[in-house]
């Protein structure tokens, strides 16, 4: 406990930096996943995108972060490298959510929208997008939680953030420092998750039932095997 009080500035700095590492990838992943997910859902052939995304998500984070600089020309220890890596993971998770969400919009509804004269652009933004909202939100909640947790891996590379507390605590034999890092990571993930749920309630007041604070079971979220 003493360690925490005497290092509160240090901890605060790491927390704020970590927040800065975690939030941009979530937003970027959502924005980039929208067109890709739409495309994957719209054309049968492009469902293969989802397989590729699933396979990409299987790539361990530390090796990915090391391989990225060769592809993107970023510096290994720069925060930009972490943000790119986390964005890619976010996309890999989110594309499936977007495609599933759009696929769940009833065909009758979209056809009605077309019938009353919506152009396909208007139909997407005014009908399909809002109706797909709750499922996309569920996906985004998974993305935000895993992103906050994954961002700690940057610590291994020496990138500033809560991950540094693990390295530093381990090397200097300070258990309190590691525990602080773990607790702050979990708290940050839960707070951001809660904010997303609130945002969902404000933006999609019709889906109060769907957007309840229910943790999403990981296997069900990733793997949709429907048994009769």
């Amino acid at each position: 406990m003493n360690w925490i009080w005497s290092n509160s500035d240090y901890i605060l700095d790491k927390t704020i930096v970590h927040l800065g590492l975690s939030v941009p990838p979530v937003i970027l992943a959502f924005v980039i996943s929208l067109p890709i997910g739409w495309f994957a859902n719209r054309y049968r052939v492009s469902r293969g995108i989802l397989t590729v995304a699933g396979l990409f998500y299987a790539i361990p984070s530390l090796p990915l972060l090391i391989a990225l600089p060769v592809v993107f020309g970023t510096s290994l220890r720069s925060p930009v490298n972490i943000v790119i890596g986390l964005t890619l993971y976010g996309i890999a998770l989110m594309v499936r959510s977007v495609a599933d969400a759009l696929a769940a919009v009833e065909a009758d509804v979209t056809q009605s929208a077309t019938a009353v004269g919506y152009s396909s652009w208007q139909r997407f933004w005014r009908v399909e997008f809002p109706l797909a909202g709750p499922v996309m939100l569920a996906g985004l909640r998974v993305v935000v939680v895993s992103t906050v947790s994954l961002a700690t891996v940057g610590g291994v590379l020496g990138v500033n953030g809560l991950g540094l507390l693990f390295i530093d605590g381990f090397q200097r034999d300070i258990t309190a420092e590691i525990v602080t890092g773990i607790v702050l990571t979990i708290v940050m993930a839960l707070v951001l998750d809660f904010l997303l749920v609130l945002l969902g309630r404000v933006l999609m007041p019709w889906s109060r039932k769907d957007a309840e604070l229910k943790p999403v079971a990981p296997v069900q979220a990733r793997q949709k095997v429907v048994l009769p």
Partner: peptide, 18 residues
């Protein structure tokens, strides 16, 4: 199972190693 997603694996391994 949902909350475990937030658990940073790197933190867990260093904590237990300590």
């Amino acid at each position: 199972s949902g909350g475990a997603r937030a658990l940073p694996s790197f933190g867990v391994i260093t904590l237990i190693a300590l």
